[in-house]
């Protein structure tokens, strides 16, 4: 796959949809194309976050270690971005991501990603939207889980 094809892929990612193609090409060029096999891990929960990944093809699972063992919390599909939280707020990885099929990703390094955010506010707005969306999902799930727990206790 060539640089220009990657730009096409990146445009389909909601996060980058409104970024000018020339900038996307730059982003693609400065990122590494990495391929994973099924079962290979992109990063482990607790690692230091150094990059975000845009999935070009293939799928992966997001898995969280908890007291009750490993819990799969989500699945990643092409045109989605993973691993951006750890590089946005300097925390270690909050989950483990493992490929569930042959996976092609674009690895965007932390410093490059942050630089892009400061240079393209439209991208920052998109990121905020995505995060807020996730937060509302998480809150809804938490509420559901708590009420379930209360019912179970009572």
């Amino acid at each position: 796959m060539l640089l220009n094809d990657e730009v096409g892929m990146l445009r389909k990612v909601p996060l980058f949809a409104r970024v000018a193609p020339a900038k996307l090409k730059l982003l693609a060029f400065t990122s590494d194309r990495v391929s994973y096999r099924e079962g290979q891990t992109l990063f482990h929960q607790g690692d230091e976050g150094d990059a975000a990944y845009v999935v070009l093809s293939g799928t992966a699972d997001i898995i969280v270690d908890s007291a009750a063992g490993q819990i799969k919390v989500a699945e990643v599909e092409p045109n989605e971005i993973v691993g951006e939280i750890a590089i946005l707020c300097d925390v270690s990885r909050t989950a483990t991501v493992t490929a569930t099929s042959a996976l092609e990703v674009l690895k965007i390094r932390k410093d490059h990603f942050l630089r892009l955010l400061t240079e393209f506010p439209e991208m920052t707005v998109e990121i905020v939207k995505v995060l807020a969306d996730r937060l509302s999902h998480t809150t809804a799930e938490l509420t559901a889980a708590r009420s379930k727990a209360r019912q179970a206790n009572s």
Binding site: A22, K25, L26, F29, T30, D111, H112, R115
Partner: peptide, 16 residues
């Protein structure tokens, strides 16, 4: 040149 002409010379992308 297409990719880099607009960037300031100290931009981290130049490492690439």
């Amino acid at each position: 040149i297409e990719l880099f002409a607009d960037l300031p010379p100290d931009h981290p992308f130049f490492q690439q």
